[in-house]
């Protein structure tokens, strides 16, 4: 389990990183924390010819509040978010980090890396869609912002061009009543199902919780219920709401996990996420 050979490039700046990516094309991969990439390289399931290391780029790590929004630099580690004081508006981010792998993974893995890896069950991907994050990306043509809902195209496939780099993630909307919960047989594993809820997540329908699910579709799946569910943001109606969400989503049988069971997990986890969000 030793990786194939590659050439190593250390970028000192975002501009240099983008230049390198442009020069090297599809054979290059960006490495930040490397917590997903290196495991795949050790299995030789990924074998980039070039690695562009952006970990030494200054100014890409850190958490800032700008007005009501939260800006998180791409190199910010999961653990940095875990221990940051983001109460009350964005406490959901800190609380969710305990679901991300384990401590020694969280100390190295980054928000930018997680989003770029585009695993549909990954917590950052789900949170980004739930909270309508804007992904700030640098490329040869300059800066562009991608809405989280447009970022994920399929399993491990994102809208990033090979020569683009995530530099920052902006969470524009406060979410004091949001939560993510998930289920796996063993702690720290990728979830069979993950459910994230923002009780105030539908500005157009303030009484209906916004739900984003992981593990039921190739990418994080937002679920919005119709006006029949107005008023389900309060305790007592979470069970009814969760059942409706579970009944609405399309789920297929999978190796080892039937659609019926997965649907049951959706119902359970949506309800529990609602309860946790209400108590937040």
């Amino acid at each position: 389990m030793k990786p194939a050979a590659f050439t190593y490039h250390r970028a000192g700046s975002v501009r240099r990183a983008v230049e390198l990516l442009s020069e090297l094309g599809e054979d290059a991969k960006v490495i930040a924390g490397g917590q997903s990439l290196v495991a795949m390289m050790n299995y030789r399931l990924a074998r980039p010819e070039h690695l562009v290391d952006i970990a030494h780029v200054k100014g890409l790590a850190g958490i800032r509040r700008v007005g009501g929004a939260l800006h998180i630099g791409a190199l910010t580690t999961h653990h940095a978010v875990e221990v940051a004081d983001l109460t009350p508006d964005f406490a959901v981010l800190s609380r969710t980090m305990r679901w991300v792998g384990h401590l020694p993974i969280r100390t190295r893995g980054t928000i930018g890396g997680s989003l770029a890896h585009a695993d549909g069950t990954a917590e950052w991907c789900i949170l980004a869609v739930l909270l309508d994050a804007r992904i700030v990306v640098e490329g040869p043509g300059g800066t562009r912002r991608i809405a989280a809902s447009d970022l994920f195209l399929g399993p491990f496939t994102s809208a990033l061009e090979p020569d683009e780099l995530i530099v920052e993630v902006v969470f524009p909307r406060r979410a004091p009543r949001a939560a993510l919960t998930e289920y796996a047989e063993r702690r720290g594993d990728f979830a069979i199902v993950a459910a994230a809820v923002d009780l105030d997540g539908c500005p157009e329908a303030p009484d209906i919780p916004l739900v984003v699910l992981g593990g039921v579709a190739p990418t994080p799946l937002p679920v919005r219920l119709g006006p029949d569910f107005t008023g389900t943001t309060g305790p007592g109606r979470f069970g009814e709401f969760a059942t409706a969400v579970a009944d609405q989503v399309q789920i297929r049988d999978d190796t080892g996990v039937s659609a019926h069971y997965r649907r049951g997990l959706v119902r359970t986890l949506v309800e529990r996420a609602c309860e946790e969000a209400a108590q937040a």
Binding site: G34, V38, N42, H79, P104, T107, R108
Partner: peptide
């Protein structure tokens, strides 16, 4: 100072 996996880190990093 932070615990990390030496198998998921290239020394050059």
């Amino acid at each position: 100072g932070a615990p990390a996996r030496a198998c998921l880190t290239f020394a050059v990093q």
